[in-house]
């Protein structure tokens, strides 16, 4: 968290404030309010776990950040710039396609149901966007894909199709595919929820490795309380479209202040 980087010594005057900032963001479906005036700041390199009961709006946070959901009110800033709007003559106007594409380039996402491309091998899944979006040559894209797939432990499954891989392996391909775009922020949306219990570990250890090796800002919605406790710098407990309580995992998991948090954690504990 380097707030002290002055413009003088930072090349290409990079923004040094929070990586992601939600400013009074609101989202509703009809009369159902999913997010209610959300304020949230995530620092560079910070790893934030979002927990909470289903329907509390936690997945919506990630989906809005990935521009998969419209924002009703408020602004999300990524790397100091508004995500879905832009400055024109000192006025915020809805972003054009070019701005959106530039902003999306900073963000990568891994989905609950993997969403791998079924008609492409693992390697091709990782090469597709680097080639078509980043304009990498076939050789560069393939080198990058091979490197990332072996990093997630699938160096021997390059030519396998998604249907030939286990759920855990598919999810690791999906992580490699997202990383191939070199995002600054990685979003993990319940990435182990669709997996059989014995496959959860391999995916979590890959995420652990990313946290250690790469300089990434990570935002994850998870039901794996143990993992959140060990891995995250900060835990946010969502309830009814708001952050009910947040803080370092030691505090949230050991000495939660809010009654709702306590109830939720007790319920989670009983389930395991």
């Amino acid at each position: 968290m380097s707030i002290d980087a002055s413009p003088a010594n930072s090349p290409s005057n990079e923004f040094s404030g929070p990586m992601v900032r939600f400013d009074k963001v609101r989202k509703s479906y009809g009369s159902l309010v999913v997010l209610d005036n959300l304020d949230l700041e995530i620092a560079r390199g910070e790893k934030v776990a979002i927990i909470g009961p289903s329907g509390s709006g936690k997945t919506t946070v990630l989906r809005m950040l990935m521009t998969l959901e419209r924002i009703d009110r408020g602004v999300i800033f990524v790397d100091g710039e508004p995500l879905t709007s832009m400055n024109r003559n000192d006025e915020l106007v809805p972003a054009d396609a070019k701005h959106l594409r530039r902003m999306r380039g900073k963000i990568g996402m891994v989905f609950q149901h993997f969403n791998l491309f079924p008609h492409m091998s693992a390697l091709k899944n990782c090469m597709e966007a680097p080639r078509t979006v980043l304009g990498l040559s076939k050789i560069e894209a393939e080198a990058r894909g091979r490197e990332l797939l072996s990093m997630v432990g699938l160096g021997d499954k390059l030519d396998h199709y998604p249907s030939q891989l286990s759920g855990g392996q598919q999810q690791r391909v999906a992580i490699a595919r997202a990383l191939a775009m070199r995002p600054k922020v990685m979003l993990f949306d319940e990435v182990t929820s669709a997996l059989d219990p014995e496959l959860v570990g391999e995916v979590l250890s890959v995420i652990r490795k990313l946290g250690a090796d790469l300089d990434l800002t990570m935002l994850m919605v998870t039901h794996q309380m143990g993992f959140a406790k060990e891995f995250a710098d900060r835990v946010c407990f969502f309830y009814g479209g708001r952050i009910c309580e947040q803080g370092p995992p030691e505090k949230i998991f050991v000495a939660p202040e809010n009654e709702r948090t306590r109830q939720f954690l007790r319920a989670c504990l009983e389930a395991t």
């Binding site: 990935m66 998969l68 963000i107 989905f111 969403n115 491309f117 997202a178």
Partner: peptide, 26 residues
Amino acid sequence: SRGQWEATVALNMSRAQALRRIVLPQ
């Protein structure tokens, strides 16, 4: 499936690229 479109957004592909390379082949 919607998930395929969402994956192309997450990979920052344009709609034309998504259609040509991901959706139409399927």
